[in-house]
Simulated assay, not measured.
Amino acid sequence: MIRLLATLLGLGALAVAMAGLVVRYLPISGHPTLILAAAAPYLTVAAPAAVLLFGLGRRFVLTLVAFAVTVALLWVYVPRYPVFGAAAPSQTPSVDVRVLTANLGMGQADPAALVTLAGNSADVVAVQEMTQEAADGLSAAGMDTVFPHRVIVPAPMASGIGIWSRHPIVHSGRIDGYAMPMIGTRIRIPGVRVDTTVLSVHLAAPWPMPIGAWRSDITLFPDTLREIGRTAGAGAVIVAGDFNATYEMAPFRELLDTGYGDAGVDARAGLTRSYPGRGQRPPLIGIDHILTKNSTASTAQTVVVPGADHRGLLATVRVPVDMTAS
């Protein structure tokens, strides 16, 4: 009886683990696959449980199958952690640029707390869901003093977007065609030969509203990334914001096929979970990202943004001094 029960439980655990592995490679066609992909890291713990259960049930072939699935999942997730040490430092001369992205939770983030956080930790700040009230509050709290260069597009509810920078912004423009506006800038970083392109982006939310707008945004976004990379030439590109997608979702990883890296992955920072981020409870999923091209992230971590429903994501990006020399 114990062997039968262990076998049945093992089969259930194996099915859960397999679902967590397979869903990473499926298109996101609706809310069921979306939720399953978001939950994938948590489903993986069922794989070693299946090994133990099949072992208890003395089902040796099934134990080997479960062990193989466990190894496959370790192959997927372990490289995202500093298990074997930190990522190797680049030998290319570079300038470290600290980038903070923060979703302000429809303008509810505490302005003074965000200014203090950004002032202590960042050189460039990308914000999303910035209302006019939030923009006014940040300016009143001293954001424009700490970061004298800015491009902001405040808007009601979730549509506002902005970038603040310690370094001069020499060009900027809106990126339209998405559910919410995005902005792109060229920032002149001292010591870097080619100006760095920085985007603040916000893709449509796929839940609880219909998923169509999100699918449209994330399907179109690779073309935007390719065009931004082309116009940036040898310059670094940093794309920061709320992608409303986790690394486990295949459409998100397809963005990286355009030549970009994910800061959290490159810095071996784990799952960089950022949502929901209100209060002191640990977030469940990582939907805020910093992507890099012609540059790489050496560190990444999430940070509490008081009042917001996301945690911020802070990364140190190594921007090569002269890409044309490589």
Rank of each mutant, 00 (worst) to 15 (best):
A250L: 11
Y260K: 07
A250M: 13
L199Q: 14
I218S: 07
V237W: 08
M249P: 02
D242P: 05
R273D: 00
A236I: 04
Y247D: 08
S216N: 03
L220V: 05
S216R: 13
G229I: 15
G270W: 10
L225N: 11
W207Y: 10
P206W: 03
G233S: 10
V201C: 04
A269V: 08
S200A: 14
L284P: 11
N244G: 02
A234L: 02
A213V: 05
G277D: 09
D262M: 12
A250D: 07
G191H: 13
A263C: 13
F252A: 00
G233H: 09
E254R: 15
A240C: 04
A204D: 06
D195C: 14
P222G: 06
A267Q: 12
P210F: 03
F243E: 03
A240M: 07
P210V: 04
F243P: 02
A232P: 13
P251Y: 03
T219S: 09
L255E: 02
G191F: 12
P190F: 12
V239N: 11
A240Y: 08
R215P: 06
A236W: 04
T196Q: 02
Q280C: 12
I187Q: 01
P206G: 03
P206D: 00
A213L: 05
G270K: 02
R278F: 11
I218M: 10
L203M: 11
A234M: 06
T219G: 11
S216F: 00
V201T: 13
E254S: 14
R215W: 03
V194I: 15
A205R: 15
P208R: 02
L271P: 09
W207S: 03
E248C: 01
L225M: 14
G279D: 09
D257Y: 11
V201K: 03
Q280N: 15
I189P: 09
T197Q: 05
V265F: 10
A267V: 14
G277R: 06
V239A: 01
Q280D: 15
I189Q: 01
R188M: 09
A234K: 04
V194D: 06
G191C: 09
V265K: 14
V192R: 11
V265Q: 12
I218T: 07
P283R: 06
I211D: 00
A232T: 13
P210G: 06
D242V: 07
R193Q: 12
A213G: 03
T197H: 13
R268E: 08
D223T: 14
G212N: 12
P276T: 08
T246K: 01
T231E: 10
T258N: 04
G277A: 07
G277T: 08
Y260V: 08
D223E: 11
L271V: 08
M209Y: 13
F221Y: 10
G191S: 10
A236N: 05
P283A: 07
L203E: 01
P282M: 00
L220A: 07
A236M: 06
E227V: 15
T272Q: 07
A213T: 12
V239P: 14
L225S: 13
G261P: 15
I187E: 01
L225Q: 12
V237Q: 06
V198I: 11
P208Q: 07
H202W: 12
T231I: 15
G241H: 08
T224Y: 04
G261N: 13
I189W: 06
G261Y: 09
R230A: 08
R230G: 02
